[in-house]
């Protein structure tokens, strides 16, 4: 057992515990904050297994961006301490079934795979290879993601526009339709 193995094991435990808290903590704020643990743990696993670029991207996108947006939303909600999101077992049935199916699938794949010929390669920087892959074989997928993000941005702009302007816009559109 090397140090890397120990570190990966630690990250797995940290991620699992934090994910458990995220799902089951009665206070949604603590749930959101314990996401830090699982997201950082995933970054740690990426880093330890040689995906250095992915690890940094995980930190910058999930911890620095998405988590902050989630926290913003949670903190802006009213009476966050009074609310309890533990509303009885019925709400857990469907998520539990879904999680169970996904877990069973992953477990099947993991146990069914032949791990005997997997050797640990030496650490190699991945950023350059990933960059070439994104403009080469995966260019189409990359452009697809770009279009999805762009439509998201346009949607955000439209939602953020003041209501008055939207009304004016509607009137203008109906007017031009009448003409």
């Amino acid at each position: 057992m090397t140090l890397v193995d120990l570190f990966v094991a630690f990250c797995f435990v940290l991620g699992a515990v934090a994910a458990f808290f995220t799902a089951f903590h009665p206070n949604i704020l603590y749930g959101a904050i314990s996401l830090i643990g699982s997201l950082v743990a995933v970054a740690g696993i990426y880093g330890a297994l040689g995906a250095d670029f992915l690890a940094a991207a995980q930190l910058i996108i999930y911890v620095g961006g998405i988590l902050i947006v989630i926290l913003f939303a949670v903190m802006m909600s009213e009476d966050i301490y009074k609310r309890r999101f533990f509303e009885g077992a019925r709400k857990y049935i469907f998520p539990a079934i879904a999680a169970g199916v996904i877990f069973a699938g992953l477990a099947r794949i993991t146990l069914g795979a032949d791990w005997s010929d997997v050797t640990k390669p030496d650490f190699e920087p991945t950023a350059r290879a990933m960059g070439w892959a994104l403009v080469g074989p995966y260019a189409l997928v990359f452009q697809y993601v770009v279009v999805v993000l762009l439509s998201g941005l346009i949607g955000a702009v439209i939602i953020a526009r003041p209501a008055v302007k939207m009304k004016q816009l509607d009137e203008e559109i109906t007017k031009s339709g009448e003409e």
Partner: peptide, 22 residues
Amino acid sequence: DLDIGVFYAMALGSLVSLGVLL
């Protein structure tokens, strides 16, 4: 001398905003 040096520095920097907010 990380291969992703600058990116790593920026990634860690994102923890700062989290600390400030929390």
